[in-house]
Design a protein around this nucleic acid. Structure first.
Lengths: 329, 329
DNA sequence: CCCATCAGGCCAGGATCCGGCCTGATGGAG
DNA sequence: CTCCATCAGGCCGGATCCTGGCCTGATGGG
């Protein structure tokens, strides 16, 4: 029988509950003798899982932090919670964990029981993506399909909407998924164009992995990495914003409410500071973050940011002014 | 030796990679004969993990979705990504998975290797919580400590800042962690007051679980649940907003960009719709969500919402109007 | 001081596991 | 269409491992 391994897994699962388990109770639950439990604990320790024991009358075993991640044994609700959390996060890629986060999501969704899937998607619908206003929302499913294809080295077919509005069908060998600020890009070898391309993931539709495996291809000019390739083509795609804003509040107050990725603040007085930085985020996103700082500020540039702030300010002011008699029905 | 169980775990880990593994390759990696691999696959299937096999020359094994969650084997980066994602999510509790999400976070952090912890916290600092403006940010650590105490039934000591500004030390038996919209509450039996209380988690400071275990206590009036107790005391704490807004856009367009928890829209014409609902969210939060819809709208009430929109609109307009600088393009 | 807990040695019997060899079935590529 | 790589699984012999039981010690709390 597959007795012992199964028991070890169950034991691991019990020990992940944040409480202490006396050996006798574990023995009862797993229906073996206490001696076997002691041996199992030994085994787990040999495997590298740091099981800590406290002696005495209220003692017991507990799994603590070690040097390697033990397998996480989640119950249904926890799995759903993680899936929902990751999906929500996948939209506004947190710098530094972007790709890993999608990988984890792909891994989880690969084995997520069917009965939990609808719970995930319905919960996700309840949380509107906090996207910038340009409507470039990304379907987490798209991301996970692409991520799977990247790691399994399978060819990918998908529809793509080019920048000029032309729709096309593509077939490509996906190389890597990269995120910059709040956008996702796929670096891939386009089989029809016979060249390396970068695709904006929010313009990819219905990607699906054809089973066909491919051998990793050399990237173009030697030594280059996917991120570089992306950086090159992105400089054509996504204009850089040269942000220049002064806040009427002390630098430390503002810094606490501003994402670090936006850049550093220079204090410019007792109660004011200035943000000068370049960003590839969208105007809408930057405007939102600025508004959320919660103090008065003044945008000096770029012009499109100033304009967007003006439009937004206007919209809100009008929303608050009850122009009931004005042009509306 | 603890050979077989360890191998099964490694096998499970390999199979979670989204790709197909031919038996021979698995045999090579795990340094056993292919026959043993076939047997191991059998064992996993017996344990309930649905391993799918495709035959043919490009075939192999793959772990697919089954009826139960298999143990998730994460690498370092994935673990960090999940921790960061959950922490970010813990702030704005997604309705329905609130508690589970915190439980999962507690479970993960219990075993998260020390060398990864600083990565999590530094990454978290990079993402400013998208909180409403009232500054009631919640430290995820606080939540996880409380969640652990709830599941392990340990007494909790913590500092508390009452609504009237009075600080105090509390000792309590935590019963449940509940979130409503975007706030967290702890339902607990206060040992000093000798009665049930609900505490706002954002006002809890330095909670720590004394080792002392306690026996679950009966909730007050029969049949009541933690959520009810909370609802009762909350009606005193958190005023309800009666929101009334008209949007100048079709109902389905607006609905797609509005959190479902805010309530339902009534179409009021070809290109307009109305939102009338009650919410316990903060004014700042509601205002933000309205602004993010991205179309013109008009707030009819409540007054504090209208006022807040006015302030915000004013601030943005002034930010865009460059009262001081005159020249630069 | 006593009791609960963890820690681990020793032993015997039995279950389990492994490798190797075999036969079939199945799907993809040439 | 044919060939090949893959999965599926039966059978067997020998080595290995696992379990339960019993023991002695150590440690911490009430």
């Amino acid at each position: 029988m597959t007795d012992t391994p199964a028991r070890l897994l169950r034991l691991l699962s019990l020990l992940q509950t944040p409480r202490e388990w006396p050996g006798s109770e574990l023995a009862g639950r797993l229906e073996v003798s206490p001696r076997t439990i002691r041996r199992d604990i030994d085994r787990l320790r040999d495997l590298g899982y740091p099981v800590e024991a406290s002696r005495g009358s209220v003692g017991g075993y507990r799994l603590v932090a070690g040097t390697a991640m033990p397998p996480l044994l989640l119950d249904d609700e926890e799995a759903v919670a993680i899936a929902v959390g990751l999906r929500a996060g996948a939209g506004h890629a947190i710098e530094g964990v972007d790709e890993a986060s999608v990988r984890a999501l792909a891994k989880l969704e690969q084995v997520l029981p069917a009965r939990l899937r609808h719970r995930v998607s319905s919960l996700q619908n309840a949380t509107v993506p906090l996207t910038r206003g340009d409507g470039a929302t990304i379907d987490p499913r798209t991301l996970t399909v692409i991520a799977s294809a990247v790691t399994s080295r399978e060819r990918l077919r998908f529809g793509y909407l080019a920048g000029d509005g032309a729709a096309s069908k593509r077939q490509a060998e996906p190389y890597r998924l990269v995120s910059t600020g709040s956008r996702w890009y796929l670096v891939a070898y386009d089989l029809d164009r016979e060249d390396w391309r970068t695709f904006r993931v929010d313009r990819v539709s219905e990607p699906f992995a054809t089973g066909a495996r491919f051998a990793p291809r050399e990237l173009p000019a030697g030594g280059e990495d996917g991120a570089e390739l992306l950086a090159r083509s992105m400089s054509r795609l996504q204009p850089e914003l040269h942000i220049d804003v002064t806040f009427e509040a002390a630098a430390d107050v503002v810094a606490a409410r501003l994402p670090a990725e936006l850049g550093a603040l220079e204090p410019s007085g007792e109660h004011s500071c200035r943000l000068r930085t370049a960003s590839r985020s969208s105007v809408e996103w930057v405007a939102l973050r600025l508004a959320l700082v919660g103090c008065a500020f003044e945008a000096l540039g770029p012009p499109e940011l100033v304009e967007h702030l003006g439009v937004l300010g206007d919209r809100l002011s009008r929303a608050a002014s009850r122009p009931s008699a004005a042009g509306r029905t």
